[in-house]
């Protein structure tokens, strides 16, 4: 009896140890990625890296100003597409949709869409926008990224608005406000910080997307702010430089990746802090 008990305890210990070991193992790649980014990327950072355009192969120096500007521009465009669609759909799901069949179909589509490969979205936008404009364009890139943002924003908005207490809605109606004003002025404002979290996470996701940009925004070695022209971006630049045979470009790829990951991590941490502070105040 006693030996059986100790065997069970041993098995328990073994299983728990395995779980802990696997968890540690799962963290190793993250640590390694961050470590190498720090080791190889920091030395490539300089003022000119942020302000100068790329130089041709063979000339040293130069920067990625085009890619930084392009990424900001593209993410801005994506927000212009993704935020209104995402937030308003979320409002519909939370305030009007309920358990209705249409709302369920929308929810399900959003969930499914968040699993569609981003490269498929790229092909979709290519056939829709690039073919009809007859050229790669920043607009196409922004739309592709915007589509990828919608599911995240929609579902966070819905979840957050459902947490807004009904008493606030009742108070607004009791003041004689029509429903739509109550939603815009009271409900959305109450959920605003949570929705901002969702938007930040969505931005963090699309800022690093490469695949859908390859044949929508394409790439551009020069500065551009035109909607109907190709545009460079940080992830595409990292890709181009990483697969190139030039050591100097590799160095720049590490530096650009470091900046990219820095942006993404800051957004994630901010989003998490917002969530925690909200949880604490309630």
């Amino acid at each position: 009896m006693n030996s059986r008990g100790s065997r069970r305890r041993l098995k328990d210990l073994l299983a728990r140890g395995t779980c802990v070991a696997f968890t540690l193992l799962a963290v190793v790649p993250l640590a390694s990625v961050l470590l190498y980014l720090g080791a190889k990327g920091v030395s490539g950072l300089s003022w000119s890296f942020f302000t100068e355009l790329p130089r041709p192969v063979g000339e040293s120096g130069g920067g990625m100003a085009n890619a930084f500007g392009g990424t900001l521009f593209l993410v801005g465009l994506a927000c212009a597409v993704g935020i209104p669609v995402g937030v308003l759909s979320g409002v519909y799901l939370a305030e009007f949709g309920g358990r209705g069949r249409f709302a369920s179909v929308v929810r399900f589509s959003a969930d499914v869409m968040s699993g569609v490969p981003s490269i498929a979205v790229g092909i979709f936008v290519y056939t829709l926008v690039v073919l009809s404009m007859r050229r790669f364009s920043a607009l196409a890139g922004g739309i592709a990224l915007g589509i990828l943002m919608v599911p995240t924003i929609m579902r966070t908005t819905e979840e957050l608005l459902k947490l807004v207490p009904d008493s606030l809605r009742e108070a607004g109606l009791a003041l004689g406000l029509p429903k739509w004003r109550v939603i815009l002025r009271v409900v959305l404002r109450t959920g605003a910080s949570g929705i901002a979290t969702g938007i930040m996470l969505a931005v963090a996701r699309v800022a690093g997307e490469t695949a859908p940009l390859l044949f929508t925004a394409f790439n551009n070695r020069f500065w551009s702010a035109r909607l109907d022209r190709p545009m460079g971006s940080l992830p595409v630049q990292v890709y181009t430089y990483a697969v190139s045979p030039y050591a100097e470009w590799h160095q720049q790829a590490w530096a650009a990746a470091l900046v990219l990951v820095g942006m993404v991590l800051v957004l994630n941490v901010l989003a998490r802090l917002l969530t925690w502070s909200r949880g604490g105040s309630r």
């Binding site: 993250l30 980014l37 690093g208 490469t210 992830p235 990951v261 994630n268």
Partner: peptide, 24 residues
Amino acid sequence: SLGFVIELLAAIPSVVYGLWGIFV
């Protein structure tokens, strides 16, 4: 905290994993 670390693992862009893959 560990849940957050796992989330960060998901947040690293694909192209950065690719870069790390090639060189590390």
